[in-house]
């Protein structure tokens, strides 16, 4: 019997077996792993997030849903904007909302009180929403066709900039109380947005904040930005904003 492979006495085969063949035959053999080898990968580190974002985008496209990713510092007025917007247009168009916060369902409760399909995501220690979370959430929301979806991101002008959520449009919101150099301090968010809402403009008389300077600073970071100047609580500028929203969905 062949001592190497345990076959019959008649030794008619070669022992130049490949590594895979030795494994298949259950033969003992040496592994030649002493030589480290370099493997080129060239893969985007956020590829998982970006792939999930593209899947979301495809789903939303197919259902004619227009999605906004709403980002700002905490307290700029994102949730109040949503409440006011919903009251103004819910009779004309269907709206769904995903709320992101570290903790509590306070924001989702406010929106749900208006009879809106709302899901709260609590990220706990997380500082941003990721596409995988949005994908799982959207799957269970049963969002109707030809409608609007608002994703209210965690109040944070830094981290959410990097994470595509599959939205059609990213809106960065800034209130005039935050200072007119904010776009310069947090450039990544302003770079990655298509729209900038400047809120609380009714407070301008009390502040040393120049709205033109906010816009110039934002445009120096991203010359493609589109602006809305609003006071959500006083109803200033809301007509423009609402008609812009309604134009996004062709029913």
């Amino acid at each position: 019997m062949c001592g190497s492979c345990g076959c019959g006495d008649h030794h008619k085969h070669s022992h130049n077996l490949s590594h895979e063949q030795m494994h298949a035959l259950g033969m003992e053999h040496h592994h030649h792993h002493e030589q480290p080898s370099v493997i080129e990968i060239e893969k985007d580190i956020l590829s998982h997030n970006n792939n999930m974002a593209e899947r979301i985008r495809g789903y939303l496209d197919a259902k004619n849903i227009y999605a906004f990713n709403l980002v700002s510092s905490p307290g700029s007025g994102k949730t109040t904007l949503l409440e006011t917007t919903i009251k103004a247009i819910k009779s004309k168009i269907n709206i769904s909302v995903i709320e992101g916060d570290q903790r509590t369902s306070n924001d989702a409760d406010r929106i749900m009180n208006l009879g809106i399909n709302t899901v709260q995501i609590n990220t706990e220690t997380g500082c941003h929403l990721e596409a995988g979370e949005i994908y799982d959430t959207i799957k269970q929301m049963n969002i109707p066709e030809s409608s609007l979806l608002f994703i209210e991101n965690i109040g944070n002008l830094v981290c959410p900039a990097l994470f595509d959520l599959g939205e059609n449009e990213r809106i960065v919101m800034i209130s005039v109380t935050e200072g007119d150099d904010k776009p310069l301090k947090y450039p990544y968010m302003f770079e990655s947005a298509q729209t900038c809402i400047i809120n609380k403009i009714d407070l301008l008389p009390y502040l040393q904040c120049d709205i033109e300077r906010i816009k110039q600073n934002a445009l120096s970071i991203n010359p493609h930005l589109r602006f809305f100047e609003l006071s959500v609580t006083q109803g200033i500028g809301m007509e423009n904003w609402i008609s812009y929203l309604l134009q996004q969905i062709q029913t």
């Binding site: 792993h33 002493e34 030589q35 480290p36 080898s37 370099v38 493997i39 080129e40 990968i41 060239e42 893969k43 985007d44 580190i45 956020l46 010359p223």
Partner: peptide
């Protein structure tokens, strides 16, 4: 012109790995 685009500097990539 303001019509410019970034061609490098936005990377976040796993370039390679070394295995034994």
């Amino acid at each position: 012109s303001k019509d410019t685009r970034l061609t490098k500097g936005n990377e976040l990539r796993l370039k390679s790995i070394i295995v034994e």
